[in-house]
Each structure stands twice: as C-alpha cells, then as structure tokens.
Design a binder for these strands. Structure first.
Lengths: 197, 197
DNA sequence: CCACAGAAGAAACTCGCCGTATCTAACAGC
DNA sequence: GCTGTTAGATACGGCGAGTTTCTTCTGTGG
C-alpha cells in the first residue's frame, strides 16, 4: 500500500499548516508572511486556513503556541551572577530574531482585531521564565551568597520584560554586553535592594 | 484683498500634513491610518505626501517628531517616592494610548523599510526623561533621604523602558496601581541596591 | 460495497490600500 | 506677463486580505 493518500485532514493538516506558518515566520518574518504563502508552503489553500483561524494574527499566535514552551532548566553555575547571565541569555535566545518582530506585528493588528489582544497578553505575561528566577535565587540564598529576598511578581517578570524591551528596540540580536549590563546594572542591584526589608 | 490663496505650499503645507497625520493617529490609530486619509484630512492629495515622505512609517515618525519633545520639569514633592510617582505618571501619559500602538506599528514596518529602524531607535533611546531621574535623585540625596547613587545609563533609562513595556503589553492606559508597583517593587529597590557600593 | 455528508482544494472575486504616473492649474520670482 | 516649479486631481497597476463558489476527495454508516 503505497499510501496514496493525497488529502490530509483534521489534526494532521492543522499541524502541517502551523509548521508552515512557523517556517514562514523564520524565513521571511511577520511583515512578509501572507496567508497565501503559508497555504502554498503547507501545500493547501487559503480557505482551509481561514476555516480554522479568523486572521493572520491568530494564525501566527497559534503557530507560536504550537511550539512547546520549553520550560527552561534552572542553571547552576555556582554563582548568582553566573546563573542570571545564563538565564538572561536563554530568554534572549528565545525572544531573539523573528520573535520580536512577531510580537510587534501581532501587537499592531491587535488594534484591528481587538480579540487578539487578550490572547497576546496572556502569552506574554505567562511566559515560563518567571519561576526560574525564584529557584536560582533560592539556591544563592542557601549558598549564603545572597540575603533572602521577597521576590515580588513584578521583580520576577522583570528579566523577560527587560529582554523583550531590548529586542523590540534594537531589532537585532542581543549582545553579551547588553546582557551583562542588564544583569550588573539593573537586576543584581535590584535584588540587593529588595533584600533590605 | 480677502487673501484668496487656495493653494498652500512649502512649510505651510508640510505643517498642515503633519498636523493631519497627528490627528489621524489620535482618532483612528496607526493601524487604520492611511496616506489617503491623511491627505483628505489635510485637504491635499497623496502625491503631495509621497513627494515628501517615502512611506507611512516615515510620515508618522515625522509627525511624531514635529510635536515638541516637551522636556518635563522635574517634580519636587518633598519625597523621592512622590517625585518618582509623578515622573512615572508623566512618562505614562506621554506614552499613553495611541503612542504604544504607533511604536508597535512603526516597529513592524521597520522590517519592510529597514531605513526606518535607525530613526526609531534614536527616537526611543534619546527620550527626554533620562536626565530628570538624576535631578530628582540628587535632590533626595541632598535632603539626606537617600544615600548617594551612581546612576548608570541603563538605570536612568529604566523608567521609560518599564513604562513603554507596560504600555505595549497592556495596550490600554497604565493605572496608578501599576505605577505604584513599578516604583515600589522595582525602581526604589533598584536605587537602594545601587547605593550600596 | 455504496451512498452521502463533510471537508479539502482550486479558482475567481471584491475590496482597500500602497505607491506611481499623468495631467492641469495655481503660484512665485523675474 | 513669462517661466519653472509644485499643488492637487484622477486614474492606474499591484498585492494581499478575506470570501464565495464549485469540484473532488475521503471516511463512515448502512
């Protein structure tokens, strides 16, 4: 049976479309991603896509979501600063390149299609890096390297916010220097300041 | 002589266009702003606009730039926290509403028209709020309210970055609570941390 | 094995907007 | 006035969003 199946359906087809969308994002970026190009790449046609997602923004969000969130392992370099640099770098790689353009692009369409706004916000606020800071920090406390800290929600989210902000502004990749600046000039001082309560 | 001038030219016309673009940004936002709508509003036509700016993004940046940067007066409430809250609020109002959408929108087109990227970056990094933090802080030091601080470039820019980030994510206005969180959970602790060197 | 419902895929269409090209009429400077 | 410049009107080509229509496949239930 040479598996003469020519038409995919259901989950299989859906996955093919999301993969194609993801590939397009990587190849040409959000601004140049068209529904037609995704359809062509997936070997299907526009209506098939529109039957599933109402517009470009939601398709892209779905493609984004279809990639597993990759809960990052908490690094353990033996020093708080080392752990933080690694953590920031991991976040940067994830946010890097296409990601920032996508966020900006989807953000814009948010105003054409307000339903998308909520989706987007959830995705950003619930990014999976929040708790890792807590872990890393706790280890530093146990090592006696750092006084105990009441890590507020804002402070926990800050690494992601800093990196995303940087990526959005710079458009390009985030250098190691930038990461060092963020860790040394902002995040470590903040943690020290939080410790005095 | 009733000044029967019907056609504006040069600077006068240019200003009319920029004003119209600004008004459109306020009324309908970046996503729905079209060159045609700006032309109509300015009482002129598309080619006149295209003779001056090569695309939407640059027109909008020009309109943005044509509004005076409004160097904010440093507040003096008698307490560092009070001053910071006012400062953050001022930034928020300036970044508010349309501003964030515009930034996101222009950002997206940055990838279609790479020349725009540099313009945008300058505009964001040279935002006029940076030095005010220094002033506010110095007064707190003179009052003996706060230990002296070596304010790094990153730390000085942080308020703007925090607010912009918040505006971009939330889409809507920034509440007083958010500002209080940013000041109390992030910026004041950071300043305290920076002071211990 | 067949029929039928439902979904895939192809194609064509509307619409809005971008950016350009063409034309004419007003204006400014001499 | 004469002349070069530029505003403003109009129309056009192109692209991509989102929709509609129609045909063709496919798997399920009888």
């Amino acid at each position: 049976m040479p598996e003469t199946r020519t038409r995919r359906r259901g989950v299989e087809l859906e996955k093919a479309i999301l993969d194609a969308a993801w590939a397009e994002l990587n190849d040409v970026g959000y601004a140049r991603l068209t529904i037609e190009s995704v359809a062509a790449r997936a070997g299907t046609s526009k209506p098939v896509i529109y039957r599933r997602w109402p517009n470009r923004a939601e398709l892209v969000l779905a493609a984004w979501g279809s990639r597993a969130p990759v809960r990052p392992p908490s690094p353990d370099t033996g020093s708080l600063r080392g752990d933080l640099v690694i953590l920031f770098t991991k976040i940067a790689r994830r946010v890097d390149g296409m990601m920032n353009e996508m966020i900006a692009g989807v953000m814009t369409e948010t105003f054409r299609h307000p339903e998308v706004a909520a989706l987007m916000r959830d995705r950003l606020v619930n990014a999976p890096f929040g708790k890792v800071v807590g872990t890393v920090l706790q280890r530093a406390v146990e090592r006696g390297e750092h006084p105990p800290v009441e890590l507020t929600h804002r402070a926990g989210r800050l690494p992601i916010d800093l990196i995303r902000n940087e990526a959005l502004i710079n458009g390009g990749s985030i250098t190691d220097e930038t990461i060092a600046e963020l860790v040394d000039q902002v995040y470590l001082p903040l943690l020290r300041g939080l410790a005095r309560d």
